[in-house]
Simulated scan of single mutants.
Amino acid sequence: MNRRRFCGGLLVSSLGATWAVRADEPRRVTDMAGRSVTLPRLPGRIVLLEARDILCMAMLHPDPASLVVGWAAVDRIDSPQVQASFERGGPMPVVGQQTPETLSVEGILALSPDLVVASSYMVPQGSDALLARLSALGIPVVFSEVASNAVPSAPVGPVENLHRQVRMWGDVLGAREQATAFSAFADAHLAEVAKRLKGAAPVTTYLEVQSTLDDCCWVAGTQVWGELLTLAGGTTLPAVTAPWFQKLQLEYLVRTPHDVYIASGGGWSAGRRPAIGPGIPAAEGRDGLERLVARTGFASLPSVRRHRVHGIWTGLITSPPFNVLFVEIAAKWLHPERLRDLDPAATLAELNRRFLAVPIEGPLWVSIQE
């Protein structure tokens, strides 16, 4: 037994009262695809086909890494610091990269999982071979995400999506009380933002979902990123019709009025993205934003001329438990007069104190002018 597994066993044993279910008690879980899945026991050997799911687990479990025996799409955590914090017991076995065809079925099976957590991106609809093989071996599969840029998701909205995902993970991990507490926390913070924004006109915003020096211009779609922008009192650009993201021509961006530009950055630097994320100094993020607005044509954007340029860590959008932080900070940028005294940094501190097994170190957002 390795150190991660041993420590995880101690934590589950010492905090058993928190889970409110016996480890050997079967439970039914409704996953994000609406599938009802029976888990014969509390899982102890989980393979994540989207490694960033460990961030949601960390909101509900004191040592999520003790339960994860392998993962895929590790780069989508988008933070070397966060990844390392979950690998203190040693490197996590990798069963795939960023796309479905890289998944290794043999690699998954070699880890003897008692649960595989998938997404509709890594296991697309119609890809029955993997599910059939796992099912034949008695290995349950739950889906943690079903959104797609090709197929619009059910119109549940980001808040209900968050609650469903947290509830699913609460059932998987036997942490329903913690899941309920987190949902209440999210509702309270989102309600405060909504109260302050009541009656405010939406602010047209260029929310860039893939900010790099060598490509332009990927804008937030009508769902997911765009819906969260709406909660923050904004609206995406009028030509956008795709659910997740859409590539626009620079000429359109230049001639389309918008008030605020929010770029996305992270801990990996492919395409020379701005360095924004856990533990990265704010000065590095600002330097990255300066390079972005130096791209051809960007000096003409109304948002850039008014110096209303900001950047976020992608995890604030791609990991639903962090969506509350995105809504708060974006609302401050879009409506500074209404949310001047709102403190997203205090919200991050509360998340770290009350929920996160592995605290997340800021800054997770930055502005070109502080």
Rank of each mutant, 00 (worst) to 15 (best):
A270H: 10
R27D: 12
T347D: 00
I280F: 09
T102M: 03
P257W: 05
L356Q: 12
A294H: 09
G107D: 04
S13E: 07
A282G: 10
G297S: 08
T204K: 10
G107I: 05
W365M: 12
W19V: 13
H189K: 04
E251A: 08
A118S: 12
A239G: 02
S269M: 11
G288M: 10
F86T: 01
L39H: 03
V156T: 14
E251N: 02
A33H: 07
A150M: 14
A294S: 05
E106F: 01
D287P: 10
L231Q: 06
F185N: 06
R164T: 12
A110K: 10
A282E: 10
G9R: 14
V366Q: 12
E361Y: 04
P140T: 10
W169T: 05
T235C: 09
Y121H: 11
P124S: 02
R286Y: 03
M168N: 09
L207T: 04
T314C: 04
V260A: 09
C56A: 10
V156P: 13
S119G: 13
E160H: 01
L237M: 01
P278T: 08
P202H: 07
T18D: 09
L67T: 01
T222K: 12
V141L: 03
G9T: 11
F326N: 10
R41T: 05
P93A: 06
W71S: 12
G89F: 03
V116N: 01
G233F: 10
Q223G: 07
E208V: 11
P321I: 07
D75N: 07
V193T: 13
T205E: 02
L111H: 03
Q125A: 15
K332D: 10
R76S: 11
D75A: 11
A17K: 07
S144N: 08
P243A: 05
P124G: 02
A345C: 13
R353I: 00
V193S: 00
D171S: 13
R28W: 14
K198C: 03
L49G: 04
L364E: 03
A346Q: 05
S144C: 06
T241A: 08
Q165W: 01
A58M: 06
R5Y: 02
G233H: 05
W244G: 11
P321W: 05
Q246R: 00
D215W: 14
E87H: 00
F86I: 00
A23P: 13
S120Q: 11
R272M: 07
A175H: 04
G8M: 07
L228Y: 06
D171F: 10
P40W: 08
P302G: 00
Q125V: 11
A349E: 14
I312Y: 11
L60W: 03
L356D: 06
L348A: 04
A84D: 01
A200P: 07
V193G: 02
G70L: 01
L49M: 07
V209P: 04
V116F: 00
G297T: 08
G96M: 01
H335V: 15
W333A: 15
V117N: 06
W365Q: 08
A330W: 12
I280P: 02
S153A: 15
G9L: 15
V293T: 15
S153R: 14
L228H: 06
D78C: 11
Y261D: 00
L248H: 06
P321T: 13
A129I: 11
Q369D: 15
K195I: 00
E227T: 05
A201N: 02
L301D: 05
L130Q: 00
L301A: 04
L15M: 15
R305V: 09
T205P: 05
T212V: 14
K247R: 13
V117G: 08
L60Y: 09
V37T: 11
